[in-house]
């Protein structure tokens, strides 16, 4: 019964939360409408037959979030410095990273992290060879980049999603 009405409880709860933040109100009518949206859209999402997502390790998720925020601030400053004062010839280029992560949702989060951090962009992902291609603005040491993306982001995502 619960499964039928709430196939994706987390998604429905998030939709309700978004609705409440959007309306900035906790009036019974708003909450009721939000619940209706959460259930309806959750069931509609189920029709798309999405792959199953399993989240584990919520504390790790928070730690990863804090780390990403810190990295975003740091790389913002780094890229701003390059744009404003960059005089030396800068080497930027592509880096191919072999991944262990195969979960669709984990990869989606990784793509948000990599593009949100100025200085790196997700270029393409080869799902058969499981190789991710990124472009790095200030490419000093290629092995260092591969290592840091695998250690800092991929490892926690593996634990959370797989």
């Amino acid at each position: 019964m619960i499964r039928r009405w709430l196939p994706h409880p987390l998604l429905s709860a998030l939709l309700l939360l978004i609705w409440l933040i959007f309306n900035q109100s906790l009036a019974p009518g708003t909450v009721l409408l939000g619940i209706a949206f959460g259930i309806a859209l959750g069931r509609m999402f189920d029709l798309l037959d999405p792959p199953k997502a399993r989240l584990r390790h919520y504390p790790l998720l928070l730690r990863l979030f804090a780390r990403v925020v810190l990295d975003i601030v740091r790389s913002n400053l780094a890229v701003a410095r390059i744009v404003l004062f960059g005089k030396r010839p800068m080497r930027s280029g592509f880096v191919a990273i072999p991944l262990q992560l195969t979960d669709r949702y984990g990869l989606a989060v990784l793509s948000c992290i990599i593009t949100s951090t100025p200085g790196t962009i997700w270029v393409s992902y080869d799902s058969s060879a499981n190789i991710l291609l990124i472009h790095v603005l200030d490419l000093v040491d290629e092995a260092g980049w591969i290592d840091s993306i695998k250690q800092r982001y991929e490892r926690p995502l593996l634990e959370i999603f797989q």
Binding site: I72, V79, V83, L84, G86, M90, T115, S116, I121, H135
Partner: peptide, 24 residues
């Protein structure tokens, strides 16, 4: 600074990095 990067950086792949400053 992000928009300035669009102007100052050399090629397409470098330039596409700059606007992410504005979005973050």
């Amino acid at each position: 600074v992000g928009s300035l990067g669009l102007l100052r950086l050399k090629n397409f792949y470098q330039r596409v990095h700059a606007p992410t400053l504005g979005t973050t």
